[in-house]
């Protein structure tokens, strides 16, 4: 049996809102030690999502035996809208389930809402992601990166990320012209999340599809910082930390062989 209780429904709502525009169907893999993990690829096979909700994401978590829950995220999203952000949210599934029970509990009123979501058999490929040695790692406010991704999409289909030891530059070239934003490393002692950290082994210059970056920055609601790991001619890793665990996006670059 699975029973996972979130202190606030908003955490799962934000997670699902961050991925459901990229992936419609996905398997939630549940286990006692790892909590709930998801690996899913978008329809165009360009973006891979890796989610890890450790047991620490939950106020209470038990999973007596490993199980896979095949979910339609659009349907799950409809049910999650029924609860309030502050509610307790509990996911319950029996062994070999054909449905997932979702329970909202209002913390102030004696109100309990229960929903049952039909599960699906989802056949999905699992990709092996090796721990990569990265050329660069950037940690910056997620709101800043989100603004760049959204603004530059209006100018160009692609966004270039150029990292040197002194700076990270985001650049877009489109029909109307071009633009760039440069950030330099910066430590904000009063607001550490506002700091910008650049670790560089080798400079990189990579190009990514603006459409996918716009999907990725939907997860900015989950964390005030984003870590971007870049390696020449390899997918970029965009990571948002959860209270315990992470939401990662691996995005294939654009380049000519």
């Amino acid at each position: 049996m699975l029973e996972g209780k979130f202190d606030q429904a908003s955490l799962l709502k934000k997670i699902i809102d961050s991925i459901r525009d990229s992936v419609k169907l996905c398997n939630f893999n549940c286990s006692q030690n790892d909590g709930i993990t998801v690996q899913a690829i978008d329809d165009s096979r360009v973006l891979l999502i890796a989610l890890k909700m450790d047991p620490g994401c939950f106020q209470e978590f038990r999973c007596d035996r490993d199980m896979v829950l095949g979910l339609d995220l659009e349907s799950l999203g409809k049910i999650l809208k029924q609860g309030n952000n502050e509610d307790y949210l509990t996911l319950i599934a029996e062994d070999n389930p054909d449905s997932l029970l979702i329970v909202f509990e209002d913390k102030k009123k004696d109100r309990i809402s229960e929903f049952s979501l039909k599960l699906m058999d989802i056949d999905s490929d699992v990709l092996t992601i090796d721990d990569m040695d990265n050329d660069c790692s950037i940690t910056m406010p997620s709101a800043d990166f989100s603004k760049i991704a959204r603004d530059f999409k209006t100018m160009s289909e692609s966004l270039q990320i150029i990292v040197t030891k002194e700076s990270v530059k985001f650049k877009a070239e489109g029909q109307i012209g071009s633009g760039s934003v440069i950030f330099k490393p910066h430590t904000d002692l009063d607001n550490p999340d506002e700091s910008i950290k650049i670790d560089m082994n080798q400079p990189v210059n990579l190009t990514f599809g603006a459409k996918y970056l716009n999907d990725i920055v939907k997860a900015s609601t989950l964390s005030s910082t984003i870590t971007i790991k870049l390696t020449d001619k390899a997918p970029a890793l965009f990571e948002f930390k959860l209270p315990s665990g992470y939401l990662r996006y691996y995005l294939a670059p654009k380049f000519e062989d």
Partner: peptide, 14 residues
Amino acid sequence: NKPQLTIEEFFPVE
């Protein structure tokens, strides 16, 4: 315009 690669060109299917 540079061509968009897919993620499977980098990460093998298990």
